[in-house]
Structure formats: C-alpha cells, structure tokens
Simulated assay, not measured.
Amino acid sequence: MERRTFLRGAVIGASAAAFAGALMPGAAYAAPAQPGAGPYGALGAADANGIQLPAGFTSRVIARSGQNVGSTGYTWHNAPDGGACFADGTGWIYVSNSEINPGGGVSAVKFGATGAITGAYRILSNTRQNCAGGRTPWNTWLSCEEVSLGAVYETDPYGVKAAVRRDALGKFKHEAAAADPVRKAVYLTEDESDGCLYRFVPTTWGDLSAGVLQVLVAGTATAGSFSWTNVPDPDGSPTTTRTQVSGAKHFNGGEGCHYANDTVWFTTKGDNRLWQLNLADNTYELAYDDSLVSGGNAPLTGVDNVTGASSGDLYVAEDGGNMEICVITPDDVVAPFLRVNGQSGSEITGPAFSPDGKRLYFSSQRGTTGSSSGGITYEVTGPFRA
C-alpha cells in the first residue's frame, strides 16, 4: 500500500504556518502525521510482563540478557538492539544486535512453525556497539557499528556462512540500513548531530564487496528535492564522510530506516522527526515531527528504530518517551500501539515482524534494571491488519 499518496489538509494554526514556511517554493507536500485513534483501539491494562496492549494482543518474553534462551543453552547477549526476521522453512529466525563496545555482535533465535523456540546461536562476534542495521533481499543481515569510523558487517541469519565486513559501505557512525531492490541500492543513516543520509550502489546487486557510496544533497528546508553525489573517500579518514561533499544535507542524529513502495522513511532523534524520501520523484518531506503536532501533546517522542507492516502501517520505537511503539497509519494518524511499564531507564529497540506478519518482536535494551545486562526481548501476537 502506498502511504501519503494524497495531500491532507494543513496542520492547524501556528504549526501549519511553520510547516508551510519551510516548504520549497512551488512545492506541494502532505502535512506531517497527527494524533488520532489508532487502528487497534486504546491500550489496555499492563499484562504480567508490564506491557500495555490493545484488546486481542498478548506478549511473551523470548530472551533475557545473561540467561539461556528457552531450553537452548545459549546465553542471550547484553543490550539487545536492532533486529529483523527471516523465513526458515515452516518457521523463522529473529536476529538481534548487541550494542556493547567492545564485544558487540549479533545473536539469532530460531522458531518452529508454531512459534516454539527451537534454537539460538551467535552469528557475529567481537565487533563494536552494533546498534541497528537492515535485512537484504538475499536474506542476510547488515549489522552496523555505531562508533566513529564504524563498519557494516554482512551476516548470515542461518549461521552457516561467516560474517564479512563490508568496507565499501563506508566508515562512519553507522546506525540503520534499508535495501531498495528497485533502484538496487542500500540506504544508510548516520548517528551524528550533523550526520548524513547515504546510498550505496553495489557494482553487482546482491554483492556488497564493491560499489559507490553516495550522500544525499539537498537544501536546508524540511521539504524539497534531492540528488545523490559520490563520496570521494568512503574510508572517512582523515576527512569524515559527512564533510566531504559540499551541499550534503545534514540530519540531527540519524536512527531507524525502512524501505517500501518507492519510499524510504528514516528517523532523526535530535529533533524527533520521521523523514520521507519519495524516490519516484526525488523529493523529501516530513512524515512526522513532534513539534508540529496540533494540540501540543505529541504521542511519539524519542524516535528510534522503525519498521513497516504489509498494511502500510509504520511502527516507530521510542528511546525514552513513554517507552512506546507507536503506529503511523497510511492516512497519517499516529497513535501508541504498546507501552512498556516500569522500565523508564531503558529504550525500545529492534521492532520486526515475523514473515507472516502475525508476530512483532522487539527488545527493551536495559529492561527493569537500567543496565545493559538487563535487556529483555519480547514477542507480541495478535490480529495485526494485513
């Protein structure tokens, strides 16, 4: 389903004026998403896991940092972060980064057809602060190091092939990645207060060993047109990648990134925004901005990881805020989908749907303890709309 394919009315009052003033001359864009009733109704009382969910949804704990995953004998990593799901016969696999430095890496949990845990194992070790990442169409997981001159590692969720560092994707403080099979490119966010948005175009689609790293070039407005320019030195030393190209657009703390239907959505934590790249016409705009919410009560703050469902709904996790995952619908309504209670010292990470779209996985990175050793990974099951 295409999101935002029609123009909505402007945001009410001063917010409307502020947004309109930021548009490029002659351009027409949809106003950012506004609060409203979510597609699943109000949140209910907290369940036994401290999670508030809409009616019909249930949660269970999949793994806890420092403890064995189910009956597998595999110890779950600390500080679980970005994640994704992969089909595996009649079952599936959920992979999860570890945002630890040093140590880092990625673990995987294997599920059978009924959702029972059938295995757990390590697919990447001895890396640094693996934060988010992204899955590829050829069923690998790109795990990104959120450190200066950090790298991207291509890993095998099935635990068969050794992980490979993909230096061609650049050396910078990587956050998330999203693959675009139409333009045969991978989009990359940068977690710096003056970070950029990048695009890697491999020489051969499906092989990330070589290619061209490009940076998005645009004006300073919150909407307009954009283009891509090659980054001369992807190694980022001695000159950082984000300062090599004149006219590169800078974003305040790039976080999650998601591709679907000729569109890339990515979040920036420094200004609590969700951005939208319309790849069909090379324009960008704001899909959500907590400072442009009518009524003044923003339901989504501390924007972080983002994923999407087949319905066209976006699910955005909060780093802080009310410890919620919020849903943004195709008609630009934003509402809480779930809330985690009693874990204010944590953040929500790694939202990802099972291949059939019926289960949502995510983690509370520091759990109830507020420490990286207190991470908890959850599964939510329910009537997600198709």
Rank of each mutant, 00 (worst) to 15 (best):
S363G: 15
T204E: 10
V106Y: 01
A108G: 13
A168V: 11
V327W: 08
A22K: 14
A33F: 08
V61Y: 01
A17C: 03
V212C: 08
T58R: 12
S227P: 02
T368P: 01
P299V: 12
F226N: 08
L360M: 15
V333C: 03
V106K: 02
T240E: 13
P202W: 08
L43V: 12
A386M: 07
C144E: 09
A22C: 11
P25K: 13
G13D: 09
D289G: 10
R3S: 08
Y40H: 13
E154V: 01
V109A: 00
D191F: 01
N49R: 11
C144F: 04
G38Y: 05
L188S: 08
P80L: 04
Q34L: 10
T307N: 12
Y40E: 06
G302S: 11
G133S: 12
P238N: 10
D180K: 03
Q244T: 05
F86H: 00
G236Y: 00
Q343D: 02
A17F: 15
A218S: 10
L197I: 15
G150S: 07
G134M: 08
H258S: 07
T220F: 04
L213H: 06
A177P: 09
G21F: 10
A386L: 13
G375N: 09
L274P: 03
A176R: 00
D319R: 07
N305H: 11
T381L: 06
Y284R: 01
A176N: 14
P238W: 07
D331S: 15
V334C: 14
G36S: 11
S237W: 13
L197F: 15
S364W: 02
P80F: 05
R166Q: 14
G112F: 00
D194A: 15
Q276H: 10
Y74G: 04
A178C: 12
A179V: 15
C196L: 09
Y121H: 09
A46P: 11
T222D: 12
T368G: 03
C144I: 02
C144P: 01
Q343Y: 03
A14M: 13
R366E: 05
T377G: 06
T263Y: 00
A20F: 14
T90P: 08
P238C: 09
E175I: 01
S373L: 07
G36A: 13
G91T: 11
E175N: 10
V186P: 04
V147A: 00
A30Y: 07
F353H: 14
T267M: 07
E255I: 05
G73P: 07
K171Q: 08
Q214K: 14
Q67P: 01
F200M: 02
R199L: 06
A18Q: 13
A63I: 06
F384T: 02
F353T: 12
G254N: 04
G375D: 10
F86E: 00
G83V: 01
C131S: 10
S246H: 05
G375L: 09
I348L: 15
A168D: 06
D156M: 04
S311C: 12
T267R: 00
R199W: 03
G295L: 15
G320Q: 06
Y361R: 08
Q67S: 11
G70I: 02
R366A: 11
T58N: 09
G382N: 07
G36N: 07
T136C: 04
I51G: 04
A177E: 03
W76G: 00
I325W: 05
A223Q: 14
F86A: 00
T204A: 11
N252K: 14
G112K: 11
G367Y: 01
